[in-house]
């Protein structure tokens, strides 16, 4: 029973029958465990929402939500009057994310096209590995690179008063989200059937024409998903933007202004608040806002991806 049926000759190193018997007996237990673990992902997502919401809930009674979203006065520790308006923080998150995407989307998709369509197999393999390693560099290290390497360059080259600003954060976030854009984008391009390419080449199209006129239209939802996942990563990024954007709660006027993002606010302030106070609960409320934003972005990306899968099955 315990012999692997696909192996024609019995392997002498196979286990003795006692242990397999015990393992077989454990089947009902193991199956239950497997099922529970399988469902755990749902449980955890719900739990995240529940526990973060639970901490934020009491503040909803005495906080004007309209003011919360539209006021740009973030003065959580003011002695005169505490004010919790996250507009400036939202603007900070959006400006840094937008700049990052402005850099990362063309570069990332271009690199995805190169890896998928132009590079020789060897170059392709090594580029993919390098990009994967890029994705592994921790965000605190990116933040450190922003502070220690990029900031002095920006300060001296562009003559800004401070090197940590939207530009710095945007570049760092772009570098962080490019790997995900490249790898998802490359998957999307690879998912286009080879017959499309062959047909186009047979009609006399050059490689560039194949990319621009055949692959982009065919893979557009996958490429969109790649961009969305990059956006999701950029919005949710914490340590890098905390260290590289200057962390000042003001609505930015130019890309050389320092900003404070939603994520960085939580990271910087939660350690210093009185547990159970309004400020504490507002930070959890910001967490809910972040959770909802990234949930929507990721859900959209998933629907877009499912869209292509449905189409190719037809």
């Amino acid at each position: 029973m315990s012999q692997a049926p696909t192996q024609p000759a019995p392997d002498p190193r196979r286990r003795k029958p006692v242990v397999p018997m015990l393992l077989d007996k454990s089947e009902p237990f193991v199956q239950t465990m497997i099922r529970l673990c399988g469902w755990s992902a749902i449980l955890f997502v719900l739990a995240i929402f529940f526990f973060v919401f639970k901490e934020a809930l009491p503040v909803l009674n005495d906080l004007d939500l309209g003011e919360f979203f539209t006021s740009d006065q973030w003065r959580p520790t003011s002695e005169v009057k505490e004010q919790f308006g996250i507009f400036a923080l939202l603007a900070g998150t959006l400006s840094v994310t937008a700049l990052a995407m402005l850099i990362a989307v063309p570069l990332g998709l271009g690199a995805a096209v190169y890896v998928s369509e132009f590079a020789s197999p060897k170059v392709k393999e090594s580029l993919k590995i390098i990009i994967e390693l890029l994705a592994a560099i921790p965000s605190v290290v990116w933040g450190f690179i922003g502070m220690a390497v990029l900031a002095p360059i920006i300060k001296t080259q562009l003559g800004t008063s401070d090197g940590v600003n939207i530009l710095n954060g945007g570049i760092i976030l772009a570098l962080m989200s490019i790997p995900i854009i490249v790898s998802v984008g490359e998957d999307a391009l690879r998912a286009v059937p080879d017959s499309y390419r062959e047909a186009a080449i047979a009609l006399g199209a050059s490689r560039w024409e194949v990319v621009a006129k055949v692959l982009f239209p065919a893979a557009k939802s996958g490429l969109l998903a790649a961009v969305l996942l990059g956006v999701g990563r950029a919005i949710g990024e914490t340590m890098a933007v905390l260290m590289a954007t200057g962390h000042k709660p003001m609505t930015p006027g130019s890309i050389f202004d320092p900003v404070q993002t939603l994520t960085a606010t939580i990271a910087a302030e939660l350690g210093e608040v009185f547990q159970g106070g309004t400020h504490y609960r507002v930070l959890f409320l910001i967490g809910i806002v972040l959770f909802v934003i990234t949930f929507i972005v990721n859900l959209t990306a998933d629907i877009v991806v499912k869209g292509i899968k449905g189409k190719t099955n037809e």
């Binding site: 901490e55 965000s139 996942l229 949710g236 990024e237 914490t238 990271a267 972040l290 990234t294």
Partner: peptide, 12 residues
């Protein structure tokens, strides 16, 4: 979505 939740929200 679990993979997409921002790390700071995991912290919360």
């Amino acid at each position: 979505n679990l993979a997409g939740v921002p790390s700071i929200v995991h912290g919360l």
